[in-house]
Nucleic acid binder design. Structure first.
Lengths: 209, 209
DNA sequence: TACATTTTGTGACAAAGTCACTTAATACAT
DNA sequence: ATGTATTAAGTGACTTTGTCACAAAATGTA
């Protein structure tokens, strides 16, 4: 159970019929996940679809050799699309989810999720739009991995992740996971950028200039 | 306009209401695309959603340097998901489509496609299931690119693309596009496999043994 | 202050991608 | 059937990226 107004960030909020919204509000389970913590219980099987009320989640995959790659992040006002797919299609899933920042979410049980998909057109459209977005995003990711050099991928990353002060707050490790590379490679490329006078490396952050 | 029975391969065929099916049959445009030929007119904008009646299409992307990567194939009984997304979300699209074999398809005009999505639950569910499938597939592709060696990716490719005689009919170039690598690298890896006695390289095909 | 933990730096080497060719196989046209 | 064009495959040299095994800093904590 959550509060109705917490769903304001979701684009379906204004259009959805009040019954469905009530169902969503009353039957979902409020849950907090502190920064750094892993979402538990999603070993191979989804036990609900998370609606992010605040914070950011990262969904990632771990290789046998321990290397990780981030698949996508889930922000405020978004759902975890993969969880939705798993719930609908009922298939396996060996991704992990971790809070990048303190998170609050409403977790909708699988059964309720399926009901809402049937009952509300608005809800269903939202879910499918979200799926389409992630599909396009992952096709872009495939292209980047195939066609772009580390230099390009890293500078794109820095550009898109800089805050208003042109600072990127992330360890080299985190950057590597996002661009699909390894820590050492990121460190070296950052060093090159620094030598070119493009930025300044600090511990846990990078300052563009 | 196509014949109704040509849609038998599509999973919605049995469940869809007859009005929607009629609409689909009468308003779609029959089109043939001979092997090797590119789908024309899809420069940046979709002019319809193709329903593959026979043959195989490949959807691919070309990099500035000319290298190509295959995003996915569309088989008999499938639609081109990206075209569907473009039609729904009305966004840009710079992928190319080519017939891998002689193809017959029903091309549904954007307007009709949108109508059917609204009118038929069965149709809509089919489209969204297809989207979910491609999303999962492209997430797998990202993982492969990140975590698997060329040796692994190529042997997977050979395994999944061998016919009943254990033959793979494809040039090294085609294999490279499917596994996200380059022709030379594939040639060399195949040579290694051959030296290990795992297969025999012929022109345009590979014989496993 | 001392010690543990996390982050970053670095050299050496391996794997994969690129470039510029050559060689081989097939198609096709006379 | 023979020569010519086209397509496919082979290869060496080199660059980029990834991996491994550490060392050195920076930070946190008892």
């Amino acid at each position: 159970m959550i509060e109705k107004k917490q769903l304001k960030k979701f684009p379906f909020y204004d259009d959805i019929d009040s019954e469905s919204l009530d169902k969503l509000v009353t039957l979902s389970v409020a849950r907090k996940l502190p920064k750094g913590q892993l979402m538990m219980g999603d070993n191979g099987r989804c036990n609900g679809v998370p609606f992010l009320l605040s914070g950011t989640l990262r969904l990632f995959r771990v290789a046998e050799n321990g290397r990780e790659i981030n698949v996508y992040n889930v922000h405020e006002g978004e759902i975890c699309v993969l969880a939705a797919i798993c719930t609908l299609a009922d298939f396996e899933y060996d991704y992990s989810t971790q809070a990048k920042e303190d998170c609050e979410m409403a977790v909708l049980p699988p059964e309720t999720f399926r009901q809402l998909m049937n009952e509300s057109e608005v809800f269903k459209n939202y879910i499918f739009t979200a799926m389409a977005d992630k599909l396009v995003a992952s096709m872009r990711a495939i292209e980047m991995l195939n066609f772009s050099s580390i230099e390009d991928r890293l500078s794109d990353y820095l550009y898109y992740n800089a805050d208003e002060n042109n600072t990127i707050t992330a360890t080299h490790e985190m950057m590597a996971r996002d661009i699909g590379s390894s820590r050492e490679v990121v460190s070296r490329q950052l060093k090159k950028f620094e030598k070119q006078g493009l930025l300044e490396i600090k511990r846990g952050k990078v300052q563009l200039k």
